[in-house]
Design a protein around this nucleic acid. Sequence first.
DNA 1: AGTTTCGGTGTACGTTCGTACACTCAAACC
DNA 2: GGTTTGAGTGTACGAACGTACACCGAAACT
Lengths: 237, 237
Amino acid sequence: MSVHTRALTYAGRVDDGTLRTESRVERKQRTRRAILDAALRLSDQSSLIAVSLRQVAKEVGIVPTAFYRHFDSIEALGLELVDESFQSLRAMLREVRRPDDAATFGAIVDQSIETLIRHVHAHHAHFLFIARERAAGPAAVREAIRHEIELCERELATDLARLPGTDAWTPEDLRILSNLIVTAMVSTAEQLISAQGLSTQGRSTQGRQDLEKEISETARAQLRMVLIGALRWESRP
Amino acid sequence: MSVHTRALTYAGRVDDGTLRTESRVERKQRTRRAILDAALRLSDQSSLIAVSLRQVAKEVGIVPTAFYRHFDSIEALGLELVDESFQSLRAMLREVRRPDDAATFGAIVDQSIETLIRHVHAHHAHFLFIARERAAGPAAVREAIRHEIELCERELATDLARLPGTDAWTPEDLRILSNLIVTAMVSTAEQLISAQGLSTQGRSTQGRQDLEKEISETARAQLRMVLIGALRWESRP
DNA sequence: AGTTTCGGTGTACGTTCGTACACTCAAACC
DNA sequence: GGTTTGAGTGTACGAACGTACACCGAAACT
C-alpha cells in the first residue's frame, strides 16, 4: 500500500488536548477531499481511465460502495479534478496579468516564465493531471480540458491587446498568437513536469536543476522569438 | 462487435480461382498485422493502457493465449506501434525536406503545412496513437515517443541551418527554434485529428472542412510568425 | 426524547482480466 | 514418409472489477 495512505479517523484532538467530534458535513468534505487526492495520486502513473473505483476506495480506506456517496463515477470525479486544477491555473494567470504598466517588454516575458515555473512546482499534481487527461482521459474530461484551455487563450488575447505596438493586429491575429503562446506554455509545463518526474527515479538533484534551468531558458527564448515575430507581423490582406 | 472485425481465414482464393494455402510465415505475419490493427482501433477511444489482451484477441478472432505467440505484452505491442507510426512520420519529413532550393520562404511554409495535413489524413490512426500515448501510454511507450520526437527536432534543426539568412544562429538557437516549431506542429496535428473525430459524430461535412481550413490557416500564420521572429533574432551574449 | 438522515459497512453477484497447462494438426524439415 | 515445429485451441484458475442490496449507528432535526 502507498506511503501516502492515511486511514480516515473521525475524531480529532484539538489544541487544548480534548477530543472533539467533527460535524457530519466536515467528515463528508474530508472524505471527499481524500478521494480526490487519492485519484490524483493513482492517476499519476498512466491515466485516470486506468484507475478503478476499487483502487481509489482502498487508497482512501473506505469500502468500494461508499465511493458512490460522493461521486457517480470515476469520470464525474475527473470533471471535478479538472475544475479544481484550472482554478489554480487561473490563479497563476491572474498573477501574471497584474497591471504593471511600467514593465519593459523583456521583464514581462521573464516574469511570466518565472511564474509558470513556480506554479508548476506548487501545483505539480494538478498540472500533471491536466497534461495526461487532456490527451487520454475519458471523453467528457478531455472536452472539459479543451474548453478550459480555449478560455485561457481568450483571456491571453485580451491581455495581449493591451500591449503597446499591437494596433495592427486583427482579432484573428490575436487568436492565432494566443493559441501559439498557450501551446508553447503547455508544452513547457509538460517538460517541467517530466523533469520533476525524473528526480523521483535515480537522477541527481543537480542534474534535475540543470534540466529545469535549460527548459525555462528555452521557454524564455521561444516566447521572445514569438513576440518579436508578432510585432513585425502584418496580417495578409 | 466492431464493424471492422474480419475473421482470419487461412486459405485465400487466388486469381485463377484455385485455392492456395498460405505459408506459415505468411499466416503469422498476417495475424501479427491483424493484432497491430486491432490494438490501434481499440486504443482509438481512451488509451492503450485501457486496452486488454483479451479485447485485442477477440477483435482479431483468436483465443487470448495465442496473443503471446506474437508479443510478450500489450506494452511490447505498443513499442512496435510507435516504431511503425514514426516510420510514416519520417516519410513525411523526408518529403518536406526535398531539396527545392529555388523555393521562396512563403512557399516552404505553405508546402510544409499542406504536407502535414495530407499525412495526418493518410495516417490518421498512427498520428492519433502517438498523440494519445505520448501523454498517457505505458511508461516505456511514452519514453520511446519522447525520444522519436527529439530525433525529429534534431532533423529539423539541420534543415533549418541550410536556410539563407540564418548565419547568426548558434546551435542552441537552432535547438530552441526547432523545439518550438515541432511543438506547434504536434499541436496542429492533434487539432486536425480532433477535427476529424468530430465528423464521426454528428457534424456536417461542411463544418468539418471549415474547421480544418481554419486550423491549417492558423498553423500557416503561426509558422510564419515564428520564422519572422527567428530571422530577427539575435541570441543574447 | 423520538425520529430521520445519510456516510460508511459487509456480503454477494456476474464479468472480465492475465496467464498456466495440455492439446491439435498442418506446414516445414530431414 | 516419418518427425519436428509452432500457431492456434480449450479449459481452468484466482484476482479484480462495477454494482446491487440490506444493514448499521451516530449526528442532525423536530
